[in-house]
Amino acid sequence: MTVLSVENLQTHFFTRAGVIKAVDGVDFKLDRGEVMGLVGESGSGKSVTGFSILGLVDQPGRVAGGSIRFHGEDLVGKSEEQLRKLRGGKIAMIFQDPMMTLNPVLRIDTQMIEAIKAHENVSKREAWERARDGLGAVGIPSPEERLRAYPHQLSGGMRQRVAIAIAFLNNPDLIVADEPTTALDVTIQAQIIHVAQKMCHERGAAMIWITHDLAVVAGLANRISVMYAGRVVEQGDTDDVIDNPRHPYTVGLLGSVPSANRRGEPLMQIPGMTPNMLNLPTGCAFQARCSRASDACKQAPVPSGEGHLVRCFHPYERVSA
């Protein structure tokens, strides 16, 4: 059953210097309980895609085209009040830096209870009990005590657990996780990934895990979408994409991850820098950094392939069938 279907999503920022097409024609589908990794460098549009789904794109940006269907209903063009009801209800979000996302001057219980009461007319007592159970479910010891704490009294990993607990408070069908482990230590990262995975599995929620770290999604996501300059350049099942990367950019990304079997060899780097989003080249945005680029790349490539999509004129061949 399809929970979310994003088609030709375009989110543009209308600045004085010109229109920045942060997201320019992104398509993907998400089934119930499925986890999709949305991978890309800073500025590739992966976070903006996430915020577009929740209708939280800041001025001067807005969704300029395409559709975001959630349970078949298009969210683009919905009123602010309709979106508000969905946000934190059926669609929840986890943010990057747990140090910044919880309000420093409000206690945990306040911040959890308000999230429940914003969506359901329940008594404070009932909301409190749900908050307590929510903290317990993400593995926070002595939740009743933690509820009385202020954010600064908790560690980073603890705070991200609280944020995950908040995201799951109203039993969402979709979680958008925007680099939720980037700001954490590696050991804590693993714990948080585990908790998020477990929660999704138990509650049957679909999740979009936005990250720049392929290694993180490799063990977590069912499918991967690789974004570059506002477009999905490669999309497919996780194992397929990791084992048989076809787009030169994905190959570059995988090559720049240090790994034990290539110890001692110089790391592969993608030459050049992310393109200026105000002044993208015509055709493939990656051509300037690509070793396989040819004149054909002056035209915009379209996605091709069955199941495993790649947006390139000169994709790498599959290593093994």
Partner: peptide, 13 residues
């Protein structure tokens, strides 16, 4: 600040 965006993401009025 992120906490305002997070508050909006929680669907608070």
């Amino acid at each position: 600040q992120e906490y305002i965006k997070f508050a909006r993401a929680k669907g608070l009025p």
